[in-house]
Design a binder for these strands. Structure first.
Lengths: 332, 332
DNA sequence: CTGTTAGCGCGTTCAC
DNA sequence: GTGAACGCGCTAACAG
């Protein structure tokens, strides 16, 4: 056995130990590790392999990174990992990254501006090859925070004057389209359920999209962090009964769909004729609320995959303009 | 401006540049960066600060890690980040880790044995100070995969003969307790809804817990990946109507609660008297399905926090025995 | 208070 | 086909 005296017992076996046991130089071991097998006899390679195995040698990635200037790691800073959207986007990102040997690691802003900033600092200070952000801070803050020049992609949340490539959704258009569908069926009024803060830009675009078709909108704000379920239900009931017009309930986020709507159906408040419901949906869970309900389906996985693809391009030096890619959501 | 010729334009400004501009030695800059301000005149510190600012200097973390033998990063390999359980656990982990200056990064096994193994390899090869796993592989596989000696904590999923500390839930006990509650009310039969594969150990314990009270169990397996919603509803309907006994529907996972149960209520199949429903729940969403429904609430955040705390202890050298901590779930 | 210097472990020429 | 030696950027003694 080798000495293992370092902090936390980290193995102290290094390349030179392997080299010694295999009776070769460290250069040969390095070559073996990096797959340059063509410059080495099969016998040598075998001996090196054996030695590595016997000693349980693990390369020191910090040393390798220092000279290679790359870690193979891409940081993904998500808005809130409790959201299916964020996690599914991450899966999409990784699907792309891993095809080229990179791997994404996930950080959670927890819907907190300061925390997001803190995470960006860490990402900037650690050895990541690139960063994909689902950002809430402004371009300026991001610029000041991530000091180290590195490839950056903005995912999901549109940001003004972005110097980085973006991948976004057609929030305005699809909200407009959905609203139009119900307007054509005679609905003249909207109750919009939204969270109070998160994803301001997306929320705003959706709101405008609705408004461009139906102007009569009641907004019900629900706090992401904590709300009184019963009270919200009462508010909804009051709102629904507060008008004779045919009413469309429009949830800007799937969560409000699954948490409130089944109960309203159960209570008989939604009949699809005079009171209907629609909203943005990511998971597919919401679609089972009622057979007649038509929703807006986003594609977080594809947004992630696109972001990942752009990141790969940047990593390979094909620097791209700060283009904006739109991954459309679909209504129906 | 300095040369920025490296890959991806990584800044090539290094400590010696800062030192030169500030007219000090690199040791002084290093001291400044590491907060040893007491050994330096305020004036010097200022000059260093200015130089860092002017040059936009960012320390090379790989070099630092190489000598410090620590990155401050802890890897968290979660079973499936689409599950609220995993993400909430991660939040709990970070709450603890960050109190001591560490930070957790999240990896996603995607409920895939091989993928989990692959991730463990990466974690083992990169410079992480420790790893918290929500494991699906066996002790042996994990041992063979993570070759580098490092602090490891197992979270959520119980594993036989673990050489590492574990934090788990009282699956058996709480399932038993919930079932008993309904048995006392006259229920004599259980329909159990479960996913086909994931978290085998947890699932098994829950099953045994139910079985220890009520033996008459119909098992309905639903695939996590893809299932026919309508068909499952039909199966459930058939099962419910297939017996005159008072029946308890027991979901081993919240997802089945939110996806199927509201519809059953709507269809009038659940009345809480002859057909009732319960199950494991993480988010609190499910509790709004019906006022009379009593669920089992897990505490993923606390499981994470406990895991994080143990990890901190190990990182600080207080090596702990492979103890097992139980974070109880609560019924009611 | 501040500077000098010897490693940290690995990749990579350039010789042999 | 293989090895010796330098350099990556930083920290931590040890000098002064």
């Amino acid at each position: 056995m080798e000495k293992k005296t370092q902090k936390h017992g980290k193995s102290v076996v290094k390349m030179r130990d392997v080299a010694a046991l295999a009776n070769v130089s460290i250069a040969t071991v390095s070559r073996y590790l990096n797959g340059n097998l063509d410059r080495m006899s099969a016998d040598t390679a075998d001996r090196v392999a054996d030695a590595i195995d016997k000693l349980n040698y693990v390369p020191n990635s910090a040393a390798r990174q220092m000279v290679k200037k790359s870690s193979g790691l891409v940081a993904v800073v998500a808005g809130n990992i409790d959201d299916f959207f964020s996690t599914e986007m991450f899966k999409g990102i990784n699907a792309m990254l891993e095809s080229k040997g990179y791997i994404g690691v996930l950080f959670d802003s927890n819907s907190d501006l300061d925390r997001e900033k803190h995470l960006m600092q860490i990402v900037s200070n650690q050895y990541f090859d690139g960063a994909i952000l689902q950002p809430y801070n402004t371009v300026q803050v991001i610029r000041e925070t991530i000091k180290r020049p590195m490839p950056i992609v903005m995912a999901d949340r549109e940001i003004e004057q972005s110097p980085w490539p973006q991948v976004v959704t057609n929030n305005y258009e699809v909200a407009r389209q959905a609203t139009q569908y119900y307007k054509d069926k005679g609905f003249k009024r909207v109750i919009m359920i939204t969270s109070s803060l998160s994803m301001a830009a997306n929320r705003r675009d959706r709101y405008y999209g609705i408004q461009s078709v139906i102007n009569n909108i009641d907004v019900l704000e629900v706090s992401e962090k904590s709300y009184n379920h019963k009270k919200v239900l009462e508010q909804l009931t009051t709102l629904i009964n507060g008008s004779q017009e045919d009413t469309l309930i429009f949830a800007l986020k799937e969560r409000w769909l699954t948490e409130f709507i089944p109960r309203l159906f159960y209570m008989g408040l939604i009949d699809n004729d005079h009171v209907a419901v629609t909203g943005f949906s990511d998971t597919g869970t919401a679609q089972y609320i009622d057979a007649k309900t038509k929703l807006i389906a986003q594609n977080p996985y594809l947004i992630g995959a696109s972001s990942g693809e752009i990141m790969l391009n940047m990593l390979e030096g094909k620097h791209r303009d700060p283009e904006k890619i739109v991954v459309p959501a679909k209504f129906g």
